[in-house]
Write a protein that binds this DNA or RNA. Structure first.
Length: 844
RNA sequence: GGGCGCAUAGCUCAGUUGGCUAGAGCACUGCCCUUACAAGGCAGGAGUCGGGGGUUCGAGUCCCUCUGCGCCCACCA
């Protein structure tokens, strides 16, 4: 018997065991394992440009629970970690942290020192710096942030193999991301196109459909009079965007609308600008909206894009990439009227146009305020505009029914936890209305590995992109020179130009299985050992982005799904059921909670939430977890305190066999639950058995175990106690890795986390045998409580009547019962129904 | 407008093919220093299972319907 402390404690065990696990490498993945021996996890790489919050603790714990279970089941668990550090969030953080902004027109400054490191004053005007300088600061800051993340995840006890750490901006990620893209290009799955695109005017980048969200904003209907060229009455239209009047290319009504049917084919002149535009018909026009006839502008919204494309209308763009009205009007637009809005922001332009319309008398109604949904970039502050620009796309079924159907079918090949999350996937894929826009006009990202030839006039030829060889990856087309050219031909007629854009962050993170498993990297055969992976854990709000994008990439590259299971986690809510947010100042830092309650306790709280359900933040629940961990140490001390059992000692007593039979049922249930990713159910069953074991079984057999009735009787109890303890320690190990390891270490040389997950003992005990004796014990306790005496007080006489089955059970537990309840005289007799009379001894 | 989920004790939630008197923890109250544990243990009160209807010998559980809350999606006139 090794070293059981006199006073077991949870204090200090976390540092000790975290260090030991790292030293022993117990979470190392065996890279020689073959696919069938592996359980592979596609860990979500967290965005590092922010602080870690309880949501991270919550969902990453869920994954770790499954990982630990699978490891104990004998699987080689591939459990990598990654940082999603490329992309806009990091850029924004760098701007705010150093007080700079990226301006690609600035020259590079060697040894540049940023004006601030953390919290520039609010009135500080960001210093424009070159792209390379900006990227250096990005690299510097993510390194700091990643260090903090790693410390937290280690403390949380994630059984990650840290040797497989990756970052989405690191060289391997860039190479794999570019390689996969080139394959997509080669197969025709990726293409570039000049087309109307959702555009954020502040970040000045294109935005994908998946990053767009509706926000309810106030707006107003303005009723405008268009003048018929054939001399009829004015045509009245309602619009919320009068500032786009100069971009108007047509009016549109529903083909069946009798009010307007006669006008189709005729033309009107726009107010203010006097442009002649046709009246056209299209089914998307809604007769019940506004006056039933709408103006089509290039481009006011995505419907305008559809009309423009399907009705083959001209283009009159007036909004620039910076969100301001272009300096020069489109052809045919009245120059004087247009001059009043040139250079204004969209908002200013609206006021100006309304003023002009009032003066001209062409504003015949409104503004009438309304609330309506407006499209925003999810991180943006001003409404999205639609501008025409050349962008790269990957096909995703948005323009191709067959592909869409195939991708929906792929979704069906994944097992979803919980199952109803699949609806969100189906819903999203079926509602796609365009291909996946992957290029971004940003800086800190994986460069799009493409150059374009310049013709003799210096015009870009986008139709014949120059691609790098795979062996040369990763490349940066802004500094690297394409094959067949020399550096001095850059941006010269007859030479080449590099694509200035980077990939959207999802375009790289959609390859997380490939990056983690080093797909097609030199000398690596890891990928074949782990792919397709077993589990993709992630939050449900990024089904439409990360999950779907990963399926798309895998579908194209491998013709299959990237993983067999998707486990979706829920949100953390305030105790008052609102989504936790930083702004409300109610965020507690995870480290602080680890310190106050212990990591196991925090993990316990997370483990209590069923997969996919939202959970309330609850320190009370953590206290329960703390109690459980504490109890585990104490009961371990008690059981192990009897010392080693003699060789060959077996469980002979029916009472003990009954307890083990109950335990077997719990093992089976917990195992099945865990196999189905339901860590919460597994814990709940284990935990409730555990408390029953401590409160009832242990109390019942305690005396016998002390050898009050001889060594042979004691041996049965001791063997049973140790068998149960071993099982319980192992079953609690995923949830309480620290306390379980601590208690396990008192009688084992190796870690509980690589111990074998328990199997039922397949004994022949009767699980119901203990019901009647424990009922008597419970009644005795109640009687003592009611009479306000100590539980140690003696029972002078206890008369129990019971049916034959229960009577037999009581007989077999008689000695244990008498001792545990301090019964002086126990009389058992047959009765039709259970009855029990208790007579306390005269007060002591 | 379409889709999905939730509603059980004051609070957080179990309740998996329909089946004894609906459970647990927290909180609350009372008792007990019982040699594993007082950062503990034992015990207690507390619920018209959101409303209504139906199927059934029997419904928290299945069907219909209504209400409330939440999430996802949707062409901004």
């Amino acid at each position: 018997m090794a070293n059981i402390p006199d006073r077991p404690t949870l204090d200090g065990i976390e540092d000790r065991w975290a260090t030991q696990w790292e030293t022993d490498g117990i979470y190392r993945f065996d890279a020689s394992a073959v696919r069938s021996e592996v359980f592979a996890i596609d860990t979500p790489p967290p965005t590092v440009s922010g602080s870690l919050h309880m949501g991270h603790v919550f969902s990453y714990t869920h994954t770790d629970l499954v990982a630990r279970f699978q490891r104990m089941r004998g699987k080689q668990v591939f459990y990598p970690m990654g940082w999603d550090d490329n992309g806009l969030p990091t850029e924004r953080r760098v701007q705010n942290y150093y007080g700079v902004r990226c301006d690609p027109s600035q020259p590079y400054q060697a040894g540049f020192e940023p004006p601030f490191r953390g919290d520039p004053p609010k009135d500080h005007e960001p210093v424009p710096i070159s792209r390379p300088n900006f990227l250096e600061l990005c690299d510097e800051l993510v390194e700091i942030d990643e260090q903090i993340f790693e410390e937290l995840f280690r403390r949380l006890g994630l059984s990650v193999d840290w040797t497989y750490l990756y970052a989405t901006i690191d060289e391997r990620s860039r190479r794999i991301s570019q390689r996969a893209f080139l394959r997509n290009v080669a197969r025709g799955e990726a293409y570039s196109q000049d087309a109307p695109t959702l555009w954020d005017v502040d970040f000045q980048t294109a935005v994908a459909q998946a990053e767009m969200e509706d926000r309810d904003k106030p707006g107003a209907y303005h009723k405008l009079a268009f003048h018929r060229t054939d001399g009829g009455d004015d045509v009245l239209i309602d619009t919320t965007r009068p500032e786009l009047l100069a971009a108007c290319v047509a009016l549109v009504a529903h083909p069946d609308d009798t009010r307007y049917r006669a006008m189709f084919g005729h033309t009107v002149r726009t107010p203010l600008y006097g442009v002649e535009v046709p009246i056209v018909a299209h089914e998307l026009a809604q007769p019940d909206k506004g006056t039933g006839i709408a103006m089509i502008c290039t481009f006011g919204d995505t419907t305008d894009v559809v009309w423009w494309r399907e009705l083959d209308l001209p283009t009159r763009a007036i909004v620039g990439r910076n969100g301001r009205i272009l300096a020069d009007p489109p052809d045919g637009v009245d120059v004087d009227a247009y001059g009043a809005i040139a250079g204004l922001t969209v908002r200013q332009a609206q006021r100006q146009v309304v003023e002009q319309l009032r003066e001209s008398g062409e504003l015949v109604g409104g503004p009438d305020p309304i609330q309506h949904p407006v499209k925003f970039y999810e991180r943006g502050e001003r409404p999205l505009e639609i501008v025409a620009s050349r962008q790269w796309y990957i096909r995703n079924g948005g323009r191709d029914t067959d592909l869409r159907d195939a991708l929906v079918k792929r979704g069906g090949e994944i097992t979803w936890h919980p199952p109803h999350m699949q609806h969100r996937y189906d819903n999203w894929v079926e509602g796609l209305n365009g291909d996946w826009l992957i290029s971004r006009q940003r800086f800190f990202g994986v460069p799009i590995p493409v150059w374009y030839p310049l013709d003799d006039q210096g015009e870009l030829d986008h139709d014949r992109p120059v691609l790098p060889a795979e062996d040369d990856l990763p490349i940066d087309p802004s500094t690297d020179v394409p094959p067949g050219y020399t550096a001095d031909q850059r941006n010269r007629p007859g030479g080449f130009a590099g694509d200035p854009d980077v990939f959207d962050t999802w375009a790289t993170s959609s390859l997380s299985p490939h990056i983690a498993a080093r797909w097609e990297e030199e000398g690596a055969d890891l990928f074949e050992r782990v792919f397709p992976m077993d589990m993709r854990p992630q939050a449900h709000d990024i089904i439409r982005t990360w999950l779907f994008a990963t399926v798309v990439r895998s579908h194209f590259e491998h013709g299959g799904v990237p993983w067999s299971n998707a486990a979706l986690s829920g949100w953390i809510l305030d105790p008052d059921r609102k989504k936790m947010s930083k702004s409300k100042g109610n965020v507690v830092t995870p480290m602080d909670l680890f310190d106050r309650h212990g990591t196991d306790a925090v993990r316990y709280w997370a483990a209590c939430a069923r997969p996919g359900t939202d959970a309330a933040f609850s320190e009370d629940q953590m206290k329960v977890g703390r109690k459980l961990a504490n109890k585990l140490l104490n009961v371990s001390k008690f059981v192990l305190g009897f010392g080693d059992v003699a060789d060959g000692a077996t469980v002979t007593d029916a009472v003990d066999r009954s307890m083990l039979a109950r335990l077997d049922a719990v093992i089976t249930e917990a195992t099945n639950a865990f196999e189905g990713f339901d860590y919460a159910r597994a814990l709940e069953r284990t935990e409730s058995f555990f408390w029953w074991f401590c409160d009832d079984y242990v109390e019942l057999v305690k005396g016998r175990a002390y050898a009050t009735r001889g060594d042979e009787a004691a041996a049965s109890a001791r063997v049973a106690l140790r068998t149960a303890l071993s099982t319980i320690q192992r079953m609690l190990a995923p949830t309480l890795p620290y306390a379980s390891e601590e208690a396990w270490s008192w009688w084992h040389d190796t870690s509980v986390h690589v111990a074998e997950w328990p199997h039922p003992t397949s004994g022949d005990g009767d699980p119901k045998l203990l019901d009647a004796p424990l009922e008597v014990l419970s009644r005795v306790r109640r009687t003592k409580t009611e009479h306000k005496v100590s539980q140690r007080a003696e029972v002078a006489r206890c008369v129990v009547g019971a049916p034959s089955d229960a009577l037999a059970a009581l007989e077999s537990a008689r000695e244990d019962l008498v001792e545990a309840a301090s019964i002086l005289q126990l009389e058992l007799g047959p009765a039709d129904e259970f009855q029990c009379e208790i007579e306390l001894a005269a007060s002591t």
